[in-house]
């Protein structure tokens, strides 16, 4: 799995359900970060030249290479806007999230 995915978590009901000491599966994500976002990146695929600068610089690693196009994992994008700001072709626009 290239990216861990959001996974449901069953909270322990017995003491033995806890791991022995503070140790747990690497890359285990019971929560998403989508709720942090106030602006959402929207990609103009016609303008995008697939230079991958956004992929390289995303602090959260949410830009996905998808057969010649970029895709964004909206479960974990925090809407920081680095991708849009760094895009040499202005192919990403930050759009306000609607409730």
């Amino acid at each position: 799995m290239n990216r861990p995915k959001h996974t449901e978590f069953t909270f322990p009901t017995h003491i033995d359900d806890y791991p022995t000491g503070p140790q747990y599966k690497a890359g285990y994500l019971p929560e998403t970060n989508a709720g942090w976002r106030t602006f959402r990146p929207v990609v103009d695929h016609d303008a995008c030249v697939y230079c991958l600068r956004c992929y390289l610089l995303c602090p959260d690693g949410t830009i996905i290479k998808d057969s010649g196009q970029i895709k964004i994992d909206m479960d974990y994008c925090k809407g920081c806007g680095v991708c849009a700001h760094e895009c040499p072709k202005d192919a990403i626009e930050m759009v306000k999230e609607q409730l």
Partner: peptide, 14 residues
Amino acid sequence: PNKMSFEEPKNLGF
């Protein structure tokens, strides 16, 4: 069981 390994990667000391 309380260790990092490449067979079963873990996050420790959380």
